[in-house]
Nucleic acid binder design. Structure first.
Lengths: 217, 217
DNA sequence: TACAGTAAAATTGTTGAACGATATTGACAG
DNA sequence: CTGTCAATATCGTTCAACAATTTTACTGTA
């Protein structure tokens, strides 16, 4: 019986909480995270907090300098290029070899429709997160647990970069219809066409993000 | 002046040490790792050891049960299939899109030659690790830091499975010449042919590993 | 003997404090 | 203004403690 686990351990919960603040932009890139301050803030011990830090460091969200402390990772053009290179490799391949009746396809469709509704309401935050759901579903087509976990990680890292940019409409809105077209191809069994179109999408998106990024630098 | 960094922090070094023992087979799958025993063994505090454990858990090498402790991950057929699926996706793509004069090609050649020498001396352990080097170099062709890190992780996990098997000669020796042929294609610029050949390699290797694994079950 | 229930022991989860090592800050002399 | 050196703050690691939980040992009973 036991009251349900309260969802397991402390460190992973802390990590999740911090991750949320990171992609929400509450913690800004380059900012230093003091062990003492944060542990007091969360009412946990320094030790527990450090365990959470390790997890986030391994995910590339935090960055550690010996004897100086933890810092919020600062996205760079190099990291954006790296991430998009991986996305092209993984997502396009997943799509090209996909089974058109895979369960993840339903999630892709749901994400497209949710994004369209959100666009009507100008809820750009929602458009963005539905876009992420769409692409996570693409990766899911490959039916690999480890690949899903890896993708979730670089997606979180990418969101850190998005957080620096200030125009979510520009970032996601133009791609809703492109997503829809990709989905059409997939559902019709034209997986290669879908993959080709996705490659266009990703290249274009990368260019947009890099351009926005360079305007800030 | 500080004695040289001895390469940074304690926890990562511990993790590296334990990782070594895992792929060397000293720690066997399913085995429980006592915090008290290991921390005494390494002469470090329980806290430091736990930090190392977190890292390895995230890599899939250890597995954690609340209030019961850390266990060495037990490879399953599912995990082997998952890993080979990823290898096919990543390695083949990296090869297909490779630049034939990429620096990693030199490492591939070195690995092939070292493996041939090792085969002559029937040093099967060396044959195996050179094989791993060869494939890591293939991934390196894609020029992605994050992809390299991810591959290193699943490679370590795969070695855990290899550790269960008892015939390293069967596992690696047959593939040396296949590796060499792949390299020939790559160096000649026939990247697609190289990729196709690698796909054959991986499918065959997966079948061998799964068969050996099922004989143990 | 077999077995259920309970008490005792061991292990993990988390905390708090301590101390050396390193980095940052600020004062001071030149 | 610059370089040196002490003072301060923070990190890295360890140790000791206690609550929560699991495992083990033991007991009494059928």
């Amino acid at each position: 019986m036991a009251e349900q686990d309260t969802i397991s351990a402390l460190a992973p919960r802390l990590a999740e909480e911090i991750r949320g603040r990171l992609i929400a932009g509450e913690l800004k890139p380059g900012q230093r995270l003091s062990e003492a301050a944060l542990s007091a803030d969360f009412s946990v011990s320094r030790n527990s907090l450090r365990e959470a830090f390790r997890l986030l460091t391994k995910e590339g969200l935090l960055h550690h300098e010996p004897n100086r402390g933890m810092f919020v990772a600062t996205p760079s053009m190099a990291s954006i290029i790296d991430i998009y290179r991986i996305r092209r490799m993984i997502e396009c391949q997943a799509l090209a070899k996909a089974y058109p009746h895979h369960p993840a396809v339903a999630r892709m469709r749901a994400a497209v429709e949710a994004a369209r509704i959100a666009r009507g309401e100008k809820a750009w935050g929602m458009v963005g997160s539905q876009n992420m759901v769409f692409h996570a579903a693409i990766v899911d087509l490959a039916d690999s647990q480890r690949l899903n976990a890896f993708y979730a990680q670089i997606a979180a890292e990418l969101r850190l970069s998005f957080g620096l940019l200030d125009d979510p409409e520009l970032l996601h809105a133009p791609y809703i219809d492109l997503n829809a077209a990709i989905l059409e191809h997939l559902e019709a069994g034209r997986t290669q066409a879908a993959a080709d179109m996705l490659e266009v999408y990703l290249t274009q998106s990368e260019r947009t993000v890099l351009a926005a990024f360079s305007r800030i630098g």
